[in-house]
Design a protein around this nucleic acid. Sequence first.
DNA 1: TTTAAAAGTGGAATCGTTTACAATAAGAAA
DNA 2: TTTCTTATTGTAAACGATTCCACTTTTAAA
Lengths: 339, 339
Amino acid sequence: MAVTIKDVAKLANVAPSTVSRVIANNPRISEKTKRRVREAMEELGYHPNYNARSLANRSTQTLGVVMPSSADKVFQNPFFPEVLRGISTKAHENEFTLYMSTGSKEEEILDAVKGMVHGRRVDGIVLLYSRIDDSIMKFLKEEQFPFTVIGKPFKYPDEVTHVDNDNFRAAKDVTEHLIERGHERVAFVGGQLDLVVTVDRLSGYEKALREANLTYRDEYIVHVEFLKEGGHEAVMELCSLEEPPTALVVADDLMALGIMSKLDEIGLSVPDDISIISFNNVMLAEYASPPLTSVDINIFQLGYQAVTCLLEKIEDAESSNKRVCVPHKLVERWSVKTL
Amino acid sequence: MAVTIKDVAKLANVAPSTVSRVIANNPRISEKTKRRVREAMEELGYHPNYNARSLANRSTQTLGVVMPSSADKVFQNPFFPEVLRGISTKAHENEFTLYMSTGSKEEEILDAVKGMVHGRRVDGIVLLYSRIDDSIMKFLKEEQFPFTVIGKPFKYPDEVTHVDNDNFRAAKDVTEHLIERGHERVAFVGGQLDLVVTVDRLSGYEKALREANLTYRDEYIVHVEFLKEGGHEAVMELCSLEEPPTALVVADDLMALGIMSKLDEIGLSVPDDISIISFNNVMLAEYASPPLTSVDINIFQLGYQAVTCLLEKIEDAESSNKRVCVPHKLVERWSVKTL
DNA sequence: TTTAAAAGTGGAATCGTTTACAATAAGAAA
DNA sequence: TTTCTTATTGTAAACGATTCCACTTTTAAA
């Protein structure tokens, strides 16, 4: 069997409790015994058992990460690896490890999450997305389990700690950017309408239009499930309008890619025939032809800050709920033309 | 505090051991008591504590997932979400959960892995990549800890269970595909040379060339770190040769995207000026302009099978090492022209 | 010196399960 | 009846840590 704290204690001629204190580097143990115990640990190749530790401790030093349904196309978005990088960086800095929940159906994921919290597998949870009426967020809230969400909670945003961009503002900015460059017919292509980020960006777009006194047309608002077919239909609709848009605000780089592919197919060129600005600025935005003008939302920071908040919440359950706003910035490339 | 097995026992008027047996659905407990105990669990809202369970059990019902360095650009490849989907599907089917290791430096990841195995946090590990001389694989092998690799281990492939495509064959196939279509000058653009998959694909390419009696030229072999700059240099080199290639075998869809972006920039069109075939067939391949002809390597299956093997290994540590080969298939789109 | 406080360790209970080993009751066979 | 199975449940010891509460020694103060 594995070597335990008792074996170490025996070899070092101390009590198990002493060994435990050495592990925790408790100042009440003399340097001399510490040295002796450490040598014993070294000699035996001792490693603490985390399960035992968690049990005694009532803390796991691990964080749960809840991704969207893996059946969902969103799952493939490079947003997630990048946000994960932010999460794991901060987690690692604080010696926390990550536990992942996945599932293909919403209910499956909810079960997994329930398992995490009831089974005491994690000390806190990061929700990587925010949907309207999300059962998982509801559950976490009811249980009063420490969690943070990336994106803005639809209901009661004040009651749950979250980190988000100012998506309303960002969308307004890019729409104005387009308007300033002479575009008067700009359309909006959004993703799943049940994602809060979609509705935020949509309202930013609308606001910009209104402020510029441009007519707002329902036909210019289109939603794409991010599936190829859906995207293509949407593009066709838009292009076959009597007054087709001269510019597109697209809620996601990947969607923009799909749209450009279709545009290319029907012989329209970006940015000469139509301009595009999208969001997220994932690596791919740079690889597109032409490279995409995109809003950098600092995905890494979203993840990093989410964990920062979560750790605070774990530390002090009573700490008040926060909202962290990660700044965005427009990265101009070649998909926008000045009219 | 949380409700424990003892509380349930008290309410149901049985011993804790009985409750435990009811949880395990042990046939030696009468249906009557089972019912009674279950009611008690229901009433109290009981949920087993996984840490305690793992401790007593010496098994965690969780699998470790080792990703490549998050600092690495590869990390962003849609390959990973998809392989994760396969992994989590199979894991879920068997009521296993996932534990994730990440880190930005190789050593950091190794530490994390050591933590997983020594700390008894997981019952087995899936390695999502195979590199030449990988310290993590070495460690796992020395420890004789159950693990499987996605991709082919460079050293001692017979001694470690792995699931892979026949990458040699796949590369040979696509190269021949190009040759059959009249291409005589076909170049190879590979990724990091320390990934085994790269060298396998490279040798398949070479073999096809040799068998077709085409001259093999060093200048036609190029490796790209997948970073934009590197990719661009490579493209420039290739295109400025006296006899530039008419077709490219590119080891990864994403790389192909980057290359096409550069090609577009310097005014070369795919497939009219140059044909491209790439690997993996991630969703993006379809979104490219033009849509990419790509080898579908069935990423989902890679993940699914890796877990299947791993579970066998966990079940029976003595089981012999396996190699599972997941079939590939060429998906033709519009990036190849017949000369 | 005597006494009080501080420093350093050890003992034993505890965290919430599982499981080997009894123990009891009920039914079948003799 | 008595005895032997068999079915069902209970007891108590792990699993491998942490931590509260003593208990010695020292050291400092009186």
